[in-house]
Each structure stands twice: as C-alpha cells, then as structure tokens.
Design a protein around this nucleic acid. Structure first.
Length: 596
RNA sequence: GGUCCCGUAGCUCAGCUGGAUAGAGCAUCAGCCUUCUAAGCUGACGGUCGUUGGUUCGAAUCCAACCGGGAUCGCCA
C-alpha cells in the first residue's frame, strides 16, 4: 500500500534518528503519522509528545532535532516546520509525481490475490412478503462488502438464504386457497412476491376477525389467538407440508415460484446477484445430528427431555437446541448449515453473516456453540451486524403498514433522477432508451450511496427527501464528477501519455497536491474497509476525493493550460481520479455514467 | 431486571488504535456561468461532543456512574 510505502520510507529513518540523537530504540508501532492539518504547511505530521520521555528534551527541541535529521537523511523529506510538539514534514513533489505515475497506470484499488476464500451471506428473505427498505440496506451492504473483499484480493462467494418454509408461507397459501379465486401474478398483473404478500395480509385480516368474534363470544384474547380456526388450519397445513402432502407441496412450489420471480426482478433492478442460494426447506433438517453428537461428547446436556447448551460461563444463558419432541429450533439449523458450508467449500477461511443487529445474541450463541463443538473455523465466523433503518415517522412496522416497499422506493428515486435530469436538459441529444438507463443509474446511486455512507453498525434514519437528493454528499454528486472528467477526457482526445520526468518537473499546485494525496490514501482506506467490513469508509473517502477534484477543476485550467507538459499532467491526474472513482463506486455496487 | 448498542451544529452524518482552533452535507444568508458539464465552486452563520467524575502533559475518543433512546433475553423464526 502506498500509505505504507511512505511510512516504510519514514519509519526506519525516524528510528535511526532516535537512536542517534537520543540513544534510544524506538518501537515502530509507537509511531503515529497523521495527515497535516490544512492550516499548516506539510504533508505528514509526527506528534513528538510520546517521545519526550526518551528524548529528555522539550517538544520543540525534540521535533526540531528529528526534523533536521530526517531532512538530512531522507531524500523525499523536502523541508519541515515545528508547531509545538508537531513536526510537519513536506514530502518532495517528486514523490507525489512518482506516485501519480503509478496510479495512472495501474489499479491502486486492486490488491494482489490473497488465496483466501470468503463466503458472504447477505440476504435471508421470507417468501411470504416482498422486500422492503430494511432488506435493501442488508443487500447493498453485503454486496458492497463482497466487492470490497474481492478488490482486497479475496475470492468471494455470495450467498443468500431463502426462508421458504414455515408457518408464514402456509398463511399466504391458505389465504390464497380460501380467497384467491385462482388469481395469479399474470391475471392480477402484479409481481409474484406482491401477490403472495397480499394474501399474507388477507390471512392476517381474517385471523383478526376470527379472534374478535371469539372474544365477543366470551373467550380470552390469548385463547382466541390459539383457537382461531384459520390459524389451526394453517398449522395443519404446515404439518401436511412436513408430511410431504402432494397438494400442499404443489401449491407451495407454485406460490414460492411466484415469489422467486418477484425477488429476482427486484435483485436485478437493484444490481445485485448471488453465487448460491440456500433454501431453508433443504437445510432445516440439518444440525440435528450435530447436536446429538455434541450431546454424546458432553458438550450439551439433557433436561426435561430436551437438549440444552449452557453458556452461562460465557455470560450468556442456557438455550434449547432440540425440543422435547426431538424437533429442531432455528439455532439447530444454523449449526448444521454452517457445518455444511465449510464441507461444501473446502478451504473456506471466513464466513460473514450480514444480518440485522436484532440477532446479535443469536450469532453470539451460534459461534460459541460451534466453537464448543470443536470446529477450528469457528473463530472465522463473523456477524456483520447492521442497525435498523428508521423512518421520520418512527419504526417500520409491517403490521401498521409503515413499511417502505423496495420496488416502490427504487421507482421513486429513479423518477426523481429523471425529473432533475430533464430539468437540466443537458441530454437532449441522446435516445430515450439511453436516458432511461442513465436515470436508472443515477437514481440507484442516490439510494445506494445514501444507505452505504453511514457506518453499518449504526441505526440510521431514512429520510425519503434526503435519499433522493442529488446534490452535496450524495452518489449522484460523485457520478457527476466522473461524468465531468469524462467530458474533459473526450475533449482531450486520444490521451497523450504523461510521463513524470524529474528533470523537467515544476512545483505542484496546492489543489493538485490535495487531490494526489487523497488518491494516495485510498488504498489504505480500502484495506481498512476490507478489514472492518465498512463500505462507509470507501463512500466517505470517495466523496473527499471528488470534492477536492472539483475544487481543483474550478480553480485550475486543464485543457486551457498552455504548457503542454502541465496540461498532460493535469489530464493524467483527472483520468486517474476518474478511474479510481469508478473502481471505488464499483466497490459500493454503484455504476458511473459516461455523461450526465 | 440481566446483557449489548447508541447519544457530536436546527436536521442527517464523519471524526473514536488519546494529540494542534471538533469536520462535512442539508437548511439559512452572500458571492461566482461570453473559458474545460453550475447535479459545480467560494464564503458566512451555526457546537458546554448527553451529564458528572476519573486516568493523562493532553479526552469527542479510554474507564466508572448516572440520564435519555434502542435491541435482546421463547421447547418462535
């Protein structure tokens, strides 16, 4: 990494300075470089306060002594200044020119292969209702993480888990049977997932009506909830499903098929995909044997006929893994599925679950259990826990109909992009089809960037008005900068290759230097994003970069520059910003348009 | 009640492996298009970093307590 390379040049020199000046060994890890604050002259800053004990001198003298030593010994240290305990170092232009030369000719956001395989699970929808805003945060986050890991040199396997069985889908099936009159997505003219979701709501209505009737008839609310005929019927249907009843299975396959078509359409429009799907109907039987084996080994224990794990030593509770009747719980399946994945993918070195933070406890327990079962890879499991998405009106609640539908939302951001795009009317000469594609790209960028720029761990507020904003700290602003550079490059024609020639170099302008430094930091940001699984780091740095570029663009002529060497250098700088931005957006799952 | 997460400008968020005068965007106000895309740029306004203690040469950042918000603690999924 380039940041590391600069440090690699400076740290040993600093250590040498230390032993010569103060006769003291300096631990490389204790050295912290920081970017020099803009109000001072310099590129990197060393804070000497931590070294005062060893130097035995005051901050100014210490910094001054180190600065003089570095300037004498390190060619790229051009000059320095001391402000209190801060040693601000100016790195020679030649270093920055040299870096740009490299960045212009290779992808600085593509790391060499690590040989590691990583599985990222980033969607686990139920098949009884359509995808909503919460799913979108999950999907965009996981997709971005998988691309970041890929750029960081890992082999990535993207998977989703489809919760295709259980009482929830039986409810939809039953309601469709009762009230559907044979309606299909085609006959109703709606997406399959929407149709099935509609019958899930129908079930709930009928169920509530039955409860009410029973309560009026004198039953307690709790009894009524248990005794409502339609609920009993749904439970019966679930039993039939488990018994492989042909009629139930046929209906189940038909309705799930509708849902998959609907999901597929949403994923396609959202621009995400998966390498493999796991279906709960196939995995829900897994895990039972593993639990029984754990019982034999004494990892688990039996109480009241059920199998339990005791995690009280870990500060957690006891948890049932097999019910008294021998059937599985959710945890059991997850144990089995994890084991299966590591069997299916030999050499899998990491498994990341992108799941909301309401399941923090679940994953804590799951990982502890797998560790107790003795799987070495248990340490490589990671719960990428993301915060809930709130609306200005409060929490999303499906029962209260406050859920923001994924398809509707995408439609809205795209049409907003269209509205603005047509107002600006810069695109009168391109076809309707091209325009449609462009607005799709811009609208989705607005939405994705809005969801990804926030630290995934944090709960976030979804403000519909802000999410379709195309100005300021937004995806379209970044796209705009890219398109703008492209326009510049088109004017430049076949780009004459700029080559850094140390002999004919000129002083870098502050605007140029600022842009180069942000490019220089980017690989470190990618590394951090890949380590911490934080797309927001990429999103925010991309914004910093294009903002600095726009300031440069505003103040400094590129094509109008008369000195050919400078002109070509600025074209190369612009082209590099464009290509790095494109790659950074790729890491977020965001496309960039050639013009807008 | 136990455990965990969060609290930074009017709003939404950065900054959090301790370091200089805490940064952006939106909103508000004032400038900049006969020159490379104004979806842009420049500037102004705006802060007891929830509160109180502690550690430290130095705390938004680490620790503790409290206040406020959220999640979770099923033989549900």
């Amino acid at each position: 990494m380039f940041q590391d390379r600069l440090q690699a040049l400076l740290v040993p020199a600093l250590q040498a300075a230390f032993s010569e000046l103060f006769n003291h060994a300096l631990d490389a890890r204790s050295v912290g470089f920081q970017a020099t604050r803009p109000e001072f002259e310099g590129d990197v800053t060393i804070n000497v306060f931590p070294f005062l004990k060893q130097s035995g001198k005051g901050p100014e003298q210490t910094a001054q002594a180190i600065g003089e030593h570095l300037k004498a010994k390190v060619p790229i240290v051009e000059r320095f200044n001391v402000m209190k305990g801060f040693l601000n170092i100016v790195i020679a232009d030649s270093y920055w020119f040299g870096f740009l030369q490299e960045a212009a000719t290779q992808d600085i956001l593509e790391f060499p292969p690590t040989g590691k395989r990583v599985m990222v699970e980033y969607a686990s929808p139920n098949t009884n209702k359509p995808l909503h805003l919460g799913h979108l945060r999950n999907i965009f986050l996981g997709y971005s993480v998988s691309r970041i890991l890929k750029s960081a040199g890992h082999e990535v396997i993207k998977v989703q888990v489809i919760n295709d069985r259980g009482i929830h889908i039986c409810k939809s099936m039953l309601a469709w049977q009762k009230f559907g009159k044979g309606e299909t997505p085609d006959s109703a003219g709606v997406k399959g997932d929407k149709l099935v979701g509609k019958y899930y709501v129908e079930f709930d209505k009928a169920y509530k009506a039955e409860i009410e009737a029973l309560v009026i008839g004198g039953r307690s609310k709790e009894d009524a909830e248990k005794e409502a005929p339609i609920m009993l019927e749904a439970q019966e249907m679930l039993l039939k499903w488990e018994a492989n009843d042909p009629d139930v299975r046929t209906l189940w396959e038909k309705m799930n098929g509708w849902v998959y078509e609907g999901f597929e359409a949403t994923y396609k429009r959202a621009g995400v995909d998966f390498d493999k799907n796991y279906y709960e109907s196939q995995t829900y039987v897994l895990g039972k044997n593993d639990v029984l084996e754990g019982l034999k080994k004494g990892v688990f224990y039996e109480k009241d006929g059920a199998v339990w794990v005791d995690n009280t030593k870990e500060g957690l509770d006891e948890k049932v893994l097999l019910r008294r009747d021998g059937t599985s719980v959710y945890m059991t399946q997850d144990i089995g599925t994890a084991i299966k994945r590591f069997e299916e993918y030999p050499g899998l070195s990491k498994l990341i679950y992108t799941v909301g933070n309401e399941q923090d406890y679940h994953f804590k327990v799951l990982f502890i259990i797998l560790k107790k079962l003795g799987f070495a890879w248990a340490d490589e499991l990671f719960h990428l826990s993301y915060g809930m998405v709130d609306l200005p009106t409060g929490k999303m609640k499906s029962r209260e109909g406050t859920v923001v539908d994924a398809d509707d939302l995408i439609e809205e951001v795209v049409s907003e992009a269209r509205k603005t795009g047509e107002q600006l009317s810069k695109l009168d000469d391109i076809s309707e089809a091209e325009k449609a594609e462009l607005f799709e790209t811009i609208g989705l960028a607005a939405l994705k960037y809005y969801l990804l720029k926030v630290d995934p761990k944090k709960r976030m507020l979804f403000d519909p008005a802000a999410s379709i904003d195309l100005q300021g700290h937004t995806g379209p602003f970044i796209q705009y900068t890219y398109a703008r550079i492209n326009s510049l490059l088109r004017k430049a024609g076949t780009m004459a290759q700029w080559m850094h020639d140390p002999k004919s170099a000129w002083p870098l302008l502050p605007e140029e230097r600022a842009v180069i430094k942000l490019l220089h930091q980017f690989p470190t940001v990618l590394d951090e994003a890949a380590t911490k699984l934080e797309p927001s780091a990429i999103a925010n740095h991309s914004y910093e970069l294009v903002k600095a570029y726009n300031s440069f663009y505003q103040a400094i002529p590129v094509m109008k520059e008369e000195d050919a060497a400078k002109r070509e250098f600025r074209i190369a700088l612009s082209a590099t910003v464009a290509s790095v931005t494109r790659k950074a957006m790729w890491c977020l799952g965001i496309e960039v348009p050639e013009r807008m």
